[in-house]
Amino acid sequence: MAKLIYPINVSLDGYMEDDDGNLAWSISDEEIFTFWADFLCSIGTYLYGRRMYEAMVYWETEKPQIPSNFTSGDQPDTLSEFARIWQKAEKIVYSRTLQDVSSARTRIDDEFNPDAIRKLKESSSSDITIGGPHLAKQAISMGLVDELHILIHPIILGGGKRALPDNLNMPLELLSERRFASGVVHLHYRLML
């Protein structure tokens, strides 16, 4: 049975976007991209809300441009590998407003159905990720999320979009941790449902 995993970059104070909806504050160097590429190798399906899909569809391009905040210089192999991994996975976008998708292996569902997610977990041979705090909040609240992969970045934003739902009381088991040269810390938790 596949696991449903919520992977997220967050500020030290728990935000995934700043007040203006920007993600440019997060560190995107070769070490971080390599970590995410290695992590995504075991993922067969991505579940996205509309806004997260629109941010990630950038990786559908065959030769992505180096982001301006990529701090380790020109690393096209790392970026190309990340794009290749993203392109080969199935994607489900949950949206009532999005009419068309601009990536292969992608479909739109207008409603997040917990029974459909349970069936997907039972039938999948590869793990599944969920992206976007609103969608993740629904899945966590419904007891569908099995693990969290949180990359805490060394910045305090003071406001923005919270990465985890408020008013959630749930014990976690720490499975692993890692510190990156940039000061980013990865925490891998299992949700104790």
Rank of each mutant, 00 (worst) to 15 (best):
D38L: 02
F39Y: 15
F39H: 15
L40F: 11
C41W: 05
C41M: 12
C41T: 08
C41R: 15
G44E: 03
Y46V: 01
R50N: 04
R50E: 07
M52Y: 06
M52C: 12
M52H: 14
Y53M: 10
E54K: 09
A55Q: 13
V57I: 04
Y58H: 12
W59R: 09
W59A: 05
W59K: 05
E60I: 03
E62Y: 09
K63D: 11
K63L: 08
P64L: 04
S68E: 11
N69K: 03
N69L: 09
T71I: 14
S72N: 04
S72C: 02
S72E: 00
D74A: 10
D74G: 12
Q75L: 12
P76G: 00
D77V: 13
D77L: 15
D77C: 13
T78G: 01
L79Y: 10
R84M: 11
R84E: 14
I85K: 09
I85S: 10
Q87C: 08
Q87W: 05
K88H: 12
E90R: 10
E90F: 06
K91P: 11
K91E: 05
I92D: 07
V93M: 11
V93I: 10
T97H: 14
L98E: 07
Q99E: 15
Q99T: 06
D100G: 01
R105D: 11
T106L: 06
R107L: 14
R107V: 15
I108Y: 15
D109I: 08
F112A: 01
N113W: 03
P114Q: 02
A116F: 07
A116N: 10
I117H: 09
R118F: 00
K119I: 01
K121W: 04
E122D: 15
S124N: 05
S125Q: 13
S126N: 06
D127R: 00
I130R: 02
I130Y: 02
P133N: 01
H134G: 05
H134E: 09
L135K: 11
L135V: 03
A136T: 02
A136V: 02
K137G: 12
Q138H: 11
Q138K: 14
A139D: 10
S141I: 01
S141K: 08
D146G: 02
I150Q: 11
I152D: 09
H153A: 00
P154L: 00
I156D: 05
L157A: 03
G158A: 07
G160Y: 02
K161F: 06
L164A: 00
L164S: 02
D166H: 10
N167R: 12
L168G: 12
L168D: 01
L168Y: 06
L168V: 05
P171G: 08
L172P: 15
L172V: 01
E173G: 08
E173N: 11
